[in-house]
Amino acid sequence: MAEQVALSRTQVCGILREELFQGDAFHQSDTHIFIIMGASGDLAKKKIYPTIWWLFRDGLLPENTFIVGYARSRLTVADIRKQSEPFFKATPEEKLKLEDFFARNSYVAGQYDDAASYQRLNSHMNALHLGSQANRLFYLALPPTVYEAVTKNIHESCMSQIGWNRIIVEKPFGRDLQSSDRLSNHISSLFREDQIYRIDHYLGKEMVQNLMVLRFANRIFGPIWNRDNIACVILTFKEPFGTEGRGGYFDEFGIIRDVMQNHLLQMLCLVAMEKPASTNSDDVRDEKVKVLKCISEVQANNVVLGQYVGNPDGEGEATKGYLDDPTVPRGSTTATFAAVVLYVENERWDGVPFILRCGKALNERKAEVRLQFHDVAGDIFHQQCKRNELVIRVQPNEAVYTKMMTKKPGMFFNPEESELDLTYGNRYKNVKLPDAYERLILDVFCGSQMHFVRSDELREAWRIFTPLLHQIELEKPKPIPYIYGSRGPTEADELMKRVGFQYEGTYKWVNP
């Protein structure tokens, strides 16, 4: 592979701008107003304001973009700056750019259920340069409990009458099928589907988006991507930290609602779906819905739930269990780990287990898709061969690698495990991989909904998990304890083995 010439960040961002501006969906010269509902909250200060700053800094926003914060707290732009700027990672050389960014910011205080507050917000936006005809993007960085009041008031008082209007809704989209349907029906009564952007930030990850290209742009994968060759698929999300004093919020939802029903299920769809007619948003989402419709409700015998306990040999936070978090209700049975087996009941995947695993306070930070292939028929190497695996590593250190057998150097035919490896950090030294939120917010500006969740996708996802969630809430089974920093409950490994996964433990990928 030829040595790549190092590029400056300015040059890299210039390439990104060229890609972005050559499309006809990006209205570079139009006025846009980006409204952050819930501007005083954690999500706004840690993710949304920093993301908008990065896009502005790199010249990736339309030229005439204004940012308006809205929340109940009586704040000023200076207050917003004070709480969000520490997350910007701005350099001293960017000081003038930073001043320009905050000059485009404003803030309006108001209630979430008060019509007069929204009329005041609308008047404020109209007073901005060309504000009355601007395109408006409303980001709901809010708890779902206020979605209905907020969307109703936005629709009645704050819509642009000339430009387009788009609304970005953060997960969780309800707690179960019934609450999700209620919320979807409410929002759909106010906005068209092409105006609604239900954001799952995992769909903005580079390697998640790469799944489609790997599958449908490489001839070698087509013939082997089926039940005849693939023994099982494992989708993993692991965090090495616990709730760390923020367990009160987590306890309301648990690990299945927080990660599995959305992030992991979306990745499953991209692995299992048929080739779409095109890369058009609805063509892709149509195929994802077909996959979900082929999955039956989760069966309790295919589920393992766990909850982390303190590690007596650990240090600091590792010595504390979930129930030691003062914000967690006493005696909570909320799971911090889950392993679930699903089956896609169609011709391509009949009988292939899709194993979804996620948890907190585990032994490493990792998100990946792992396809394990069947054993080689007619073994001539005296059971020395391990199964081939194709691994798409989402985070950290984005990579695609194939675990395969090669001859060990020497005189004899002794096979050993090795890999074919594409590590993004080595291959793409001159490429700026956008943060997931950067990519998705740019998608909203461009009107691309491919990486957002459609209402029928959402409904099918909740259909699969709601009976299990209701059973857990009714019966309150005690989750299996696992030690902070471990791989999780051993019962999860036993479940995976029972459905056909072979864990060798003899080879570990190392970032080159």
Results as ranks from 00 to 15, higher is better:
123 S>M: 13
221 F>A: 08
99 E>L: 06
165 N>P: 03
59 G>Y: 03
192 R>C: 11
14 G>Y: 10
21 F>M: 15
64 N>D: 12
146 V>F: 05
158 C>R: 02
143 P>Y: 05
239 E>S: 06
64 N>A: 07
201 H>E: 08
94 E>C: 10
41 G>P: 04
106 S>W: 08
127 A>W: 11
198 R>H: 03
176 D>C: 12
85 E>S: 10
207 M>V: 06
16 L>R: 10
193 E>D: 02
146 V>D: 02
144 P>S: 07
27 H>M: 13
160 S>G: 12
233 V>P: 05
74 R>K: 15
229 N>S: 09
151 T>W: 10
220 I>H: 04
196 I>T: 10
231 A>D: 07
72 R>Q: 01
56 F>I: 06
56 F>C: 03
252 E>N: 13
181 D>C: 12
152 K>W: 10
107 Y>C: 09
96 L>I: 14
14 G>I: 07
64 N>E: 11
203 L>H: 00
151 T>K: 01
213 V>Q: 09
170 E>G: 04
229 N>T: 07
133 Q>K: 14
74 R>W: 15
43 L>Q: 04
25 A>P: 14
225 W>E: 00
30 D>A: 09
59 G>M: 07
58 D>S: 08
79 D>K: 08
38 G>I: 01
253 F>M: 05
14 G>Q: 15
67 I>C: 08
217 A>L: 00
230 I>D: 05
155 H>G: 11
144 P>C: 00
77 V>M: 11
64 N>K: 14
119 Q>N: 15
202 Y>R: 00
124 H>A: 14
209 Q>D: 05
66 F>Q: 12
71 A>H: 02
150 V>A: 09
145 T>S: 13
237 F>I: 12
37 M>I: 15
189 S>G: 15
234 I>G: 07
239 E>I: 03
74 R>C: 15
56 F>G: 02
67 I>T: 02
228 D>A: 10
236 T>V: 06
96 L>P: 12
132 S>G: 09
47 K>R: 09
224 I>A: 09
32 H>G: 07
106 S>C: 10
243 T>V: 12
149 A>D: 13
30 D>C: 14
215 R>Y: 03
110 G>I: 01
136 R>V: 09
110 G>E: 05
24 D>M: 09
95 K>P: 03
224 I>T: 12
163 G>M: 06
115 A>W: 11
87 F>C: 07
22 Q>W: 10
100 D>G: 11
219 R>G: 14
95 K>N: 10
213 V>W: 09
218 N>R: 02
60 L>T: 02
26 F>L: 07
57 R>M: 04
46 K>A: 01
230 I>R: 01
98 L>P: 01
239 E>R: 02
174 G>A: 04
134 A>G: 12
126 N>R: 14
160 S>W: 06
70 Y>C: 11
53 W>N: 02
178 Q>K: 15
231 A>V: 07
103 A>F: 10
57 R>I: 05
98 L>N: 01
177 L>G: 08
88 F>C: 10
57 R>N: 07
6 A>M: 15
91 T>W: 09
186 H>V: 12
165 N>H: 11
37 M>T: 07
240 P>Y: 10
83 Q>P: 05
190 L>R: 13
224 I>Q: 11
158 C>F: 07
196 I>W: 00
197 Y>M: 00
160 S>I: 07
27 H>A: 12
39 A>Y: 02
221 F>D: 00
204 G>F: 00
172 P>H: 00
11 Q>E: 15
138 F>L: 05
179 S>K: 03
21 F>L: 14
50 P>G: 05
203 L>I: 01
185 N>K: 14
143 P>D: 03
36 I>Q: 02
25 A>T: 15
177 L>M: 14
10 T>P: 07
17 R>N: 14
52 I>D: 01
53 W>D: 04
253 F>P: 02
250 F>A: 05
146 V>H: 05
114 D>T: 14
32 H>A: 08
209 Q>G: 08
244 E>T: 11
32 H>V: 09
51 T>S: 08
193 E>P: 00
75 L>F: 12
119 Q>C: 15
114 D>I: 11
108 V>I: 14
208 V>N: 13
226 N>F: 06
248 G>M: 06
230 I>F: 06
202 Y>N: 04
153 N>T: 08
75 L>Q: 10
86 P>I: 09
154 I>A: 07
124 H>L: 08
192 R>M: 12
112 Y>V: 03
205 K>T: 04
66 F>A: 08
158 C>G: 06
222 G>S: 15
159 M>H: 13
46 K>V: 02
190 L>Y: 07
125 M>H: 01
124 H>P: 01
180 S>I: 02
232 C>G: 14
22 Q>F: 14
176 D>E: 07
186 H>T: 09
192 R>P: 14
243 T>H: 02
182 R>E: 15
192 R>W: 10
70 Y>F: 12
78 A>C: 12
88 F>K: 00
188 S>Q: 09
242 G>S: 07
132 S>F: 13
39 A>S: 05
66 F>E: 10
134 A>E: 15
226 N>L: 05
43 L>G: 03
93 E>Y: 12
200 D>Y: 01
201 H>G: 01
154 I>P: 06
50 P>M: 04
140 L>W: 07
202 Y>P: 02
55 L>W: 01
9 R>H: 09
124 H>W: 11
232 C>L: 05
149 A>P: 12
9 R>K: 11
161 Q>V: 13
167 I>T: 07
178 Q>N: 14
90 A>Q: 08
193 E>A: 01
234 I>V: 14
195 Q>K: 06
119 Q>F: 14
74 R>S: 14
146 V>T: 12
213 V>A: 13
151 T>N: 09
198 R>I: 04
71 A>P: 03
11 Q>T: 13
16 L>D: 14
7 L>N: 14
164 W>Q: 08
237 F>N: 01
109 A>D: 12
102 F>P: 00
37 M>N: 04
215 R>T: 04
35 I>V: 11
159 M>F: 15
174 G>L: 03
159 M>W: 10
51 T>Y: 06
153 N>V: 07
27 H>F: 12
118 Y>F: 15
193 E>C: 05
62 P>I: 03
37 M>A: 12
215 R>H: 00
123 S>A: 15
61 L>P: 00
40 S>T: 12
